[in-house]
Amino acid sequence: MNISEQLKVYFVMGSTNCINHDPEKTLAEAINGGITLFQYREKGEASLTDENRVYLGKKLRALCKRYSIPFIVNDDIELALELESDGVHLGQDDDAPLVAKKRIKNHMIIGLSTHTVEEAKLAVTAGADYIGVGPMFTTKTKTDAHEVVGPTLISHIRAAGLPDFPIVGIGGITIHNALEVYQSGANGIAVISSISHASSPREAAEAFNTLR
């Protein structure tokens, strides 16, 4: 499965995102529901730090490896290396992809958050393997979220000379608006609370899988 296919149902989660179950159970259920990619995003108030963050990361990494789900680390290259992750996802203010490629293993995936057509083009030139575009809709998960750009931005990026580059939409995506993101030209959707807050993360993941 290539990265375009792996982006289909991209689950993003940290300990603070889990409400009804602990992180391991939440991820295990989501995997059983058919997620295709996982990102460990341990951020925000009350998030784990230092050895606790590493300890949870190792448990989630082992779970992903058991089920052959690619494991991505958010923002932190050192943590990605320590956890032997499959990749790292960077923001616009983090290490540039070209710098990151010099610090990580060649086989690691590099994702980059983008919010404009120009940023998307630069990300491709800089060596990103996929881009996250958003926020698609209003989100409460990120307190520092950018202004909503909507699914139309993905359509504009496609029309601007990137018809086949791997793109995942992120931000405020629910089962009710996900199809709009797919229809805009995204290869997949990145979901946090719509799965992690669900009483049954497995059923939530299954529901997203039925959309494509």
Rank of each mutant, 00 (worst) to 15 (best):
E203N: 15
T138D: 13
V99S: 15
P151N: 05
E203F: 04
L179V: 15
G127E: 03
S47D: 08
K43T: 06
E119K: 11
A123N: 06
G185Y: 01
I154Q: 03
S196L: 07
H146L: 11
P163R: 01
G188F: 01
I109V: 15
G34Y: 03
A96E: 08
V149H: 09
G171W: 01
G57F: 02
T210C: 13
A123T: 03
E24R: 10
M1T: 03
L48S: 08
L60I: 09
I35Y: 09
D94M: 11
T36G: 07
H89M: 10
L81I: 14
V9Y: 04
G188E: 01
T16R: 05
S199Y: 05
R53L: 10
G161W: 07
L83V: 08
I195H: 00
E78H: 13
F208N: 01
G57P: 05
H197D: 08
H115A: 03
A62D: 14
A205I: 00
L7G: 04
A120P: 10
V73F: 08
L122D: 11
H176M: 06
F71Q: 02
I35S: 07
L122M: 14
T174F: 01
G150D: 09
K142R: 05
E45F: 08
A204C: 03
F71V: 11
P135A: 04
E82L: 15
T16G: 05
M108N: 12
E51A: 09
E84M: 07
I35W: 01
H156N: 10
N32W: 06
R41V: 03
L63M: 12
S193Y: 13
V168C: 06
M108S: 08
K8W: 09
S193T: 12
V99N: 15
A28T: 15
Y40G: 05
N52Y: 14
D94C: 01
C64Y: 04
S194I: 00
V133N: 10
I192W: 00
I189G: 01
V148M: 05
G172I: 06
T138A: 13
K8M: 06
S194G: 05
A160K: 04
A126F: 06
F71I: 08
E180L: 13
N177K: 04
G57H: 00
L112Q: 01
L90Q: 07
T141D: 07
I31E: 02
Y130N: 14
H197P: 04
E29W: 04
S184T: 05
I110H: 06
G87D: 06
S200C: 14
I157W: 03
Y182K: 14
R41G: 03
I109E: 11
R61P: 07
E147S: 11
L27I: 14
V54W: 02
S113N: 14
K59G: 07
N106C: 09
F137R: 11
E180S: 14
H107K: 14
K8D: 11
H89T: 10
I35Q: 03
I157V: 04
G171I: 02
V168N: 06
F71M: 09
P151R: 02
I110V: 04
D164N: 10
G188D: 01
G14Y: 00
F11Y: 08
K101R: 15
F208V: 05
A96L: 13
I173N: 07
A28S: 10
E147T: 11
A186T: 12
L179R: 12
Y10I: 09
A190P: 02
